[in-house]
């Protein structure tokens, strides 16, 4: 049986405050994604438009020069695929 509560009420901070700065990064907001982008590196010209337009700021430049999303946070909105000038990004159904 999965626990319905995270912790006992006595263990919550005063007023349910969050006392650890930056803890929101631990919340993997990409876990409800139904569509995921995939990159065709043959077509990609490494322009970085996808990074600029990603509303989640989850695309970053990698050492090999390609721009890839962090799937922990990518929500699969498809803006990168839609805006890619070379159609190098395609959206596929999330396999889970």
């Amino acid at each position: 049986m999965s626990a319905k509560a995270l912790m006992a009420w006595q263990d919550l901070a005063l007023g349910t405050a969050i006392c650890e700065p930056g803890s929101a990064a631990k919340l993997k907001t990409g876990d409800w994604r139904s569509m995921a982008p995939s990159l065709d590196e043959e077509k990609c010209i490494q322009c970085g438009i996808c990074l600029i337009l990603c509303p989640e700021f989850c695309i970053s430049e990698h050492d090999d020069g390609f721009f890839r999303p962090d799937y922990d946070y990518c929500k699969g909105c498809g803006i990168c695929a839609n805006e890619c000038p070379k159609d190098a990004i395609t959206m596929g159904r999330e396999e889970k």
């Binding site: 995270l6 919550l12 007023g15 349910t16 405050a17 969050i18 700065p21």
Partner: peptide, 12 residues
């Protein structure tokens, strides 16, 4: 830093 008044998800 603390966050006062955050979201209380159903688990909290």
């Amino acid at each position: 830093p603390v966050t006062m008044g955050p979201v209380g998800v159903p688990e909290v």
